[in-house]
Amino acid sequence: DGKMGVFGPTIVLVALCVHPSHSLSASNVFFDTQGRLLRSGAGSSAPRLYLPVFDGHSLLHEVLPGAWEAVLLTSEQVASFTAPGQGALQARIGLSSTGSPMAQRGELLGAAEPPAFYLLELSHLAQPPDGESLGAPDGSEWRQLRSAAQVSVLDHLRDDDEAALLATARGLALWHSSNGFCSACGAPTQPARDGTIRTCGSCGARHRPRLDNAIIVLVTDGQGRCLLGRKGSWPEGRYSTLSGFLDFGETLEECVVREVREESGVAVNRASIRYVASHPWLFPRSLMVGFIAQADNVELGDGDDELADVRWFSREEVASCVEAAAEAPLFHVPSKVSLAYTIIQQWLRETV
């Protein structure tokens, strides 16, 4: 059901053996900044830039037709919201690395050194503040980051690294709003450690953001076809790789086998399962771990009712769809924002 229990943090120990011809360029993985956003150790002396969030919406500015960027606000611009007693929550996201596009944006905003990025959660207000009151560029808009019914604004950012900033800010805002009370004793919790955790003032328990682990897998038949499915709520013609959340106590490999069997009736060859990539999917709080696997049988059976359709597609069909880069009504796959796109691209490279 997507709800996090009161369990300890997930610790993943991974040993990967990747054939050189099958190596994946991590630059192809959306939300992976390749170290340009340093997630820990944001220096207290670093100038701050804030990403405002209101009720799950982010403030964006259309710099060119169809090209968006995150609105970043300086400490001076948000001083009236961050003053003591004003109720705005602040939480550290990370520090930009020297020379990165994010650091260059900081320079344009007057930062003398690489800035630290912070969430500015404004959902305590009755209405979202307009861009003018925040000092944002003219034409700035509060936008949802993704939509199941249309192309995501994340597909149209001028700098893809900003997707990591925006998604993390939105995800942190949701986590804070969902964890106002201690799961151990029921007392109120308060932000601590620069907003990266919450602590209980009664029993002292510390609460850290948790991610729901999920697998996403492209199943192949070894003969140039792959297995894709679609949900009834998706836009017409959209098919994607199969996916699902881990059951409690389940391994990633067990989850791959189970989810494929439940959704399609196809049996996966366990020995064929191999890791491709991972990325956070903070809508609301998942870590997607991606695989490619081969089927032991190609006959589709009776799956559960989660998917409206599941079928085999030829490499030619999938390649044409990806090359078209359009949401064709008869058949298309998710955009670059999804890990499904990364895995499909990997398979297409391997099967040239």
Rank of each mutant, 00 (worst) to 15 (best):
N179M: 08
V71A: 07
L59K: 02
L157G: 01
P101Y: 12
L154G: 10
A164I: 02
A79N: 03
A136M: 09
R170I: 03
L166V: 10
F81W: 10
A79I: 04
S133N: 05
T74D: 03
S123D: 05
G85C: 07
F181R: 15
P128F: 09
T74S: 09
H156D: 14
A184G: 12
H156G: 02
H176E: 03
F181V: 14
G106F: 08
C182G: 14
A103C: 14
Q150D: 14
L157Y: 12
G66W: 10
S133V: 11
L172S: 05
G139K: 10
T98S: 09
S140Q: 02
S75P: 01
A148Y: 09
S80L: 15
A70T: 09
E76H: 08
D160Y: 05
H61C: 09
T74K: 08
G135P: 11
P129Y: 04
W68K: 00
E113P: 00
C182A: 13
A83L: 06
A79C: 13
D160Q: 14
L60I: 10
S80C: 15
H156A: 09
R170S: 08
R158S: 08
A70Q: 10
P129G: 07
L145D: 05
L64E: 14
L154R: 14
W175D: 00
L174C: 15
S96M: 13
A126V: 14
F181Y: 13
D161G: 02
V78S: 01
G131L: 04
R105K: 14
P65W: 10
A163H: 00
E62N: 06
A116H: 00
L165Y: 08
A112T: 12
L109E: 08
L145K: 00
H124K: 13
L95H: 15
E69V: 08
A83M: 03
F117H: 15
G180R: 15
A79L: 11
W175F: 13
S152R: 00
L174R: 14
P52I: 13
